[in-house]
Design a protein around this nucleic acid. Structure first.
Lengths: 109, 109
DNA sequence: AAAAAATACCTTGCAAAACAATATACCTTG
DNA sequence: CAAGGTATATTGTTTTGCAAGGTATTTTTT
């Protein structure tokens, strides 16, 4: 898969998954992996950025199946940003489709 | 607009526009600008990369409205790559949509 | 009990690419 | 001749995906 296509959408995907239920990093990797190739080296720095910008909060939960898990939870700002990103995403894809079909007057400059 | 979302799609867009008729850089900027914000600092390096990978050819045409224009023309490899990128793009957007709707089993992992 | 694998976290460093800024140069119009 | 539109190209900055490496806990296999 084209690695460049993921840019700008991964943030939206992570926020979207977390919006449907609190989630820890490792779990997030597995869930998003069903949609696109992704590794932990991508998710952990991303979640750090999201927390620094106040879009998510986190809390630790002990686990009896391994090391403690850091759960992520959407903040109000995160929910707003998710909505904004989703709107932007649909606008963008529609715009691309128009261009691919030549619907931007590509023959009459 | 989210600058990151453009990544991986600009190449496809440029190839697509050129596929509907030979085009020079400045013109390409104007046409793609109808779809997304873009500047010359993005297009010229991109076209250079595309030429280096053999996806486009170029030829100079004198102009009486300014400096000579460098026209770009799709190669056979370029046309193949455009088809590949387009398929990938639609697969990708569909996959994202599924994830946004929570259709990847986000509750019963 | 030792080894391996699965679970879970995190960081470092590299590479790709968008874009602002800058430079060059041609032509037209005021 | 100055301003502005047309046209190409490069440099440096920033962002971010990801491979590679590291730590630690629990379970399973040998």
């Amino acid at each position: 898969m084209n690695s460049q296509m993921k840019r700008g959408t991964l943030e939206m995907c992570a926020l979207s998954v977390v919006s449907r239920g609190d989630c820890y990093g490792y779990e997030l990797v597995n869930r998003i992996s069903k949609c696109m190739e992704i590794t932990e080296g991508t998710i952990y720095p991303l979640m750090k950025r999201l927390k620094e910008s106040g879009l998510i909060d986190s809390y630790i939960v002990e686990s009896n199946e391994g090391p403690p898990r850091k759960y992520y939870k959407l903040t109000d700002a995160g929910r707003e940003e998710l909505n904004r990103l989703t709107d932007e995403w649909f606008e963008f894809t529609q715009s691309i489709e128009k261009l691919l079909k030549g619907e931007f007057g590509n023959y009459d400059s």
